[in-house]
Design a protein around this nucleic acid. Structure first.
Lengths: 337, 337
DNA sequence: ATCAATCTTGCACGCGCGTGCAAGCTCTTT
DNA sequence: AAAGAGCTTGCACGCGCGTGCAAGATTGAT
C-alpha cells in the first residue's frame, strides 16, 4: 500500500512516533517562539509533511481558550463599500494569523441570534460593520459576554463597553461643509442614510450645524431607508422632479457613495440635468466606482488599511480598555463638486 | 453578589447541577430531535438561560468531527458581483445552520496556504468562488484532503474530484450570441477576463464558435487581467481610440458586468460615443448597478438563490459523488444592447 | 394488576492539543 | 574539570461535548 495512504486523520501522536519524539515536541515544532532545538524541529517538520499533518485548530482553541477567530457581522450587503471593507479587514486579519467568521445578519430580528451564534464559536472578538446594530442590539451583545471584545468598525460609538475604530466623522464632515462653502454653493441639500442609531446621525447633524453657523441658513434633507444606489436614485428623482432652477439645490451632499452614485444617476437620467453644472454631488467612502470616468465623484476617503491594521493591534492587546480610536481621512476632489 | 455574576464560563455541567439532571441531558435539550421529554427540556432550558449557557461549538466539533463550518475562498474583491454572491451564500448557509469562514486569498501564491488554513479549522467543505484557482491549486487542495468537499461555485469545473455549481455557460453564451445575431449586430468584439483556467475560457470560446458557425466570421477579442471596471475602462479607451466607425465594433460582449460597466464608461467618456447607438454592450451576472438608469445593461442573470440553496443541499448530503450540477439563468434585456 | 414495548436518562471513553512544571541535557565559566 | 546557567524535552491533567449502549421510568394492553 502507498506510504501515506491512510492519511485520514493524522494527529500529533502519529508524527511523534515517526519522528521519534514525544507528542508535545511535535506541537512545539509548530509553535512560533517555542523552546525547541532547530534540529529537532526540522526532524519533526519533515515527518509531519510526509504524513500530511497540520495541527487541529479546534482542539487548540478548546485547550487554550484562544481561537484566533473573529466574527464579522454584516447586515448591509447593498452598499458596495462593504466589499472594500471586507477585503481590507480579511487581508489585515489573515496576514497576521487571524481567521474570519462572516456572519450575515439576515434581518433586524436576527442580530441577537447572530451574535449568540458567534459567541458559540468562542470567537475572540466580534466586529460590527453594519448599520442596523442599534443600542438594543449592542446591549444584548454586551450581555451575552463571551465575545471578549466588541468592536464597531468604521462607525463611531459612544458606548463605553465598545471599541470603536472609525474616522472622525465630525472633522470629516466639517471639512466637507467647508469645501462646499468655499466653492460657493448656496443651496445644499443633505441626503442621509438610515437613521437607526444616534451616532449615525452625526454626519448630518454636523453638516447642518456647520452650515447654520456660517450662513445662518438651515439645510433641507431626507433619509434613505438603506444605502442602496438604486433606491437613492428613485428618491432623488421623485424629490426633485419639476423643480425650478432657483428652488432646487445646487449641491447634494450624501452620507456615502452609494447614495451619491444613485443621486448622480437620477440627476442625469431622471431629471435630465448635468453634474456638477446644474447640481453638484459629494459622497463619502471613495468606493472604486467613485473614480470611474462616469462619476468622478468628490468624496471622502477613510484610511481603511490603517484602520484594519489598528484593529488587529487591538485584538493582540490583552486589555481592551481605552482602545477606541478615531482616524483622519482625506477629501478626494474630483469633478462632481 | 449578583446571581449570575460569575457567568464567565458556564458549561453544561453547571446547568446540569442547576436543573438537577445529568450533563448529557443538558446537551440533549439543545439538540433537535433528541430523545428527551418536553418537561425535562423545559426545565433545562430555563436553567440554561438563567445561567447564560450556550453549547460550545468548538468542543462539539471536536467530539463529533463535524463542524457545520465551511470555508469560502475569495480572491477577487474588485468584482462587485462577489458581494452579491457573498450575501446569497451566507444567507442560505446561515439560515440552515451553517457558519462561514471567509478566507481572503491574498495573492496567487497564497491559495495553497489559504486552503491549508481552512483545513486546519476542520471545515466540512471548502467553497471556491474566485478565479485564480487554477489546476495546480486544485491539485494542492485535493491533496490536502481534510476538506471533505471541494465546491466550485458559479464556475464550471471539469475536475472529477470537485463539485461544481454553476450556470450552463455554454448554453448561456449561445443564448447571448443568438441575441446578438438576432438584433442584427455585424461586428462584435469579445472582452474576456483573466484566462487562468481552461474552463474560464468557455464563454469566450463558445461565443466565438457560435459566431463563426453562423456568420463564417471570426470575432476579435482581448482579455483583462482582472474583473475590474476601472481597468476595463482604460483598456477599452485605449483599444478603440481613433477608430473609424466602419472598423470599430458595433457591440462589445463582455464576460461579466464588471467589464461591461467599465466598457460603457469608456465608450461614453473616453471615446465620446453613445451606448447602444454607436457601440452596444452586453454583460453577465446582473449586478445591482446593471439595473441603474445610467447603465441599463443587458446581461445574463444567474439563479444565485437556487444555486446557494443547492449548495447547502450538497453539504447536507453524506455522499459527494455526482453532485455537480448546472443551472439555467435568463437573459435580462435592457437598453445597452 | 402484570408484562412487554417504548421512552427517557445516565455514563465510560475519547476527540487533539495547551499549560506549567520538573527532569535531563548542553555549554560556558573559572 | 566541576558547577551553574540556560536550553530542551517529557508528562499529568484538563478543555467541553458526542457516541453508543444499558439501566431506569413510563405507558398501554391484556
Amino acid at each position: 500500500m502507498p506510504k501515506n495512504e491512510a492519511s485520514e486523520n493524522v494527529t500529533a501522536d502519529d508524527v511523534a512516533v515517526a519522528a521519534g519524539v514525544s507528542r508535545w515536541t511535535v506541537n512545539r515544532a509548530f509553535k512560533k517562539d517555542a523552546s525547541i532545538s532547530p534540529m529537532t524541529r526540522e526532524k519533526v517538520m519533515q515527518a509531519a509533511s510526509q504524513l500530511g499533518y497540520l495541527p487541529d485548530l479546534r482542539a487548540a482553541a478548546l485547550a487554550s481558550d484562544k481561537s484566533n477567530l473573529v466574527a464579522l457581522l454584516v447586515d448591509d450587503f447593498a452598499n458596495p463599500h462593504k466589499l472594500v471593507m471586507l477585503e481590507r479587514l480579511t487581508r489585515a486579519l489573515r496576514s497576521r494569523g487571524w481567521d474570519t467568521l462572516l456572519v450575515n445578519t439576515l434581518n433586524a430580528e436576527d442580530a441577537g441570534p447572530a451574535i449568540a451564534n458567534a459567541s458559540q464559536r468562542r470567537v475572540d472578538a466580534t466586529i460590527l460593520i453594519g448599520i442596523q446594530f442599534d443600542d438594543e442590539v449592542l446591549a444584548a451583545a454586551l450581555g451575552a459576554r463571551r465575545l471578549q471584545k466588541l468592536i464597531i468598525f468604521a462607525r463611531t460609538s459612544e458606548n463605553p463597553n465598545t471599541i470603536s475604530i472609525a474616522v472622525d466623522d465630525a472633522a470629516a464632515t466639517r471639512e466637507i461643509a467647508q469645501y462646499v462653502l468655499d466653492r460657493g454653493y448656496k443651496r445644499p441639500f443633505y441626503f442621509a442614510g438610515p437613521r437607526t442609531v444616534s451616532a449615525h446621525l452625526m454626519r448630518k447633524e454636523t453638516f447642518l450645524a456647520h452650515w447654520l453657523k456660517h450662513t445662518d441658513q438651515t439645510v433641507p434633507s431626507m433619509s434613505a431607508p438603506s444605502y442602496d444606489a438604486n433606491i437613492a436614485a428613485e428618491m432623488v428623482g421623485h424629490q426633485f422632479a419639476n423643480q425650478q432652477e432657483t428652488t432646487r439645490p445646487d449641491i447634494i451632499v450624501c452620507e456615502n457613495d452609494a447614495l451619491a452614485i444613485g443621486t448622480i444617476d437620477a440627476i442625469r437620467h431622471q431629471l435630465g440635468l448635468r453634474v456638477p453644472e446644474d447640481i453638484a454631488v459629494i459622497g463619502f467612502d471613495d468606493v472604486p466606482l467613485a473614480a470611474s470616468p462616469n462619476y468622478k465623484l468628490t468624496t471622502y476617503r477613510q484610511p481603511l488599511t490603517a484602520m484594519a491594521d489598528y484593529l488587529v493591534d487591538v485584538l493582540e492587546q490583552s486589555e481592551s480598555k481605552d482602545m477606541t480610536r478615531t482616524f483622519h481621512g482625506q477629501l478626494i476632489t474630483r469633478d462632481s463638486a
